[in-house]
Amino acid sequence: MYKSFVFFALIVLLTHSSSAQSFSDAMKEEINIYQKIYDAPLQVAGKPPASFKEFYSQQPFVLALVFTRCVGICSPFLVNLKETIQLQPFEKDFKIIVVSFDPWDTADEMELLARNLGLKSDPKWIFAVTDSIDQMNRSLGFDPVWDSVRMQFDHDALLVGINGDGYITKKLIGLRERNELNQLVASIHNVFSPTYRLPNPNILFSCFNYDPISGKNKPGLGLAFLALPAVMAVGVLLIVSMSVRKRKIL
């Protein structure tokens, strides 16, 4: 619990320093929705070469984009994803493919990353590199910028849902609540939800909030505002009745 809080604080800090969440950024997740992912060849350490198509035609997957020398969001982002999944596994099965967008990364370095995260032997997780980074990025609408001073990429922490036909069904940028991950996983299994909320900072009074720890759909403060007037009316009814009828209320 304490650990995830630290990660949360860290990630909030990091996402705010790199790109403050605004309405405009929220629309980034709409880019290239229902476009097909570029069928980039993938190299996984110690495995024969494959491509995205070979993966999604077997099982839909969630794609995470990182680079191994990242001193910022990549590592806490993956740890958080791992913990979220381990804490409460999803009903429907899917794979998580972590692909590097740094041309300097090798398949071995990605394997090392997997080992450090304790995910090397987990069959759900695949760590790979590709030689078609630009085409892949373009098909995902992903746009990392190299910062030659910090020697780092300035980039979003991006999760992309890919369904069984290779279509991008949903994207999530940054650390997100469990329910939004649920929606992402549902979308790759072609479960339709007619709507979703755009990430924006003013969720204090929204009708529904999602608890990322329990993964439950929790009524938000907004719903309380819907129920409050009825409660107030009943309260007034009881108070008035008590004050004017000393003997009995009912």
Binding site: E30, I33, Y34, N163, D165, Y167, T169, N190, V191, F192, P194
Partner: peptide, 15 residues
């Protein structure tokens, strides 16, 4: 309308 074509992948998406 919320349930229309729910299980399908749309051929085209318009924002």
């Amino acid at each position: 309308p919320y349930f229309a074509h729910a299980g399908e992948t749309p051929a085209k998406v318009v924002h």
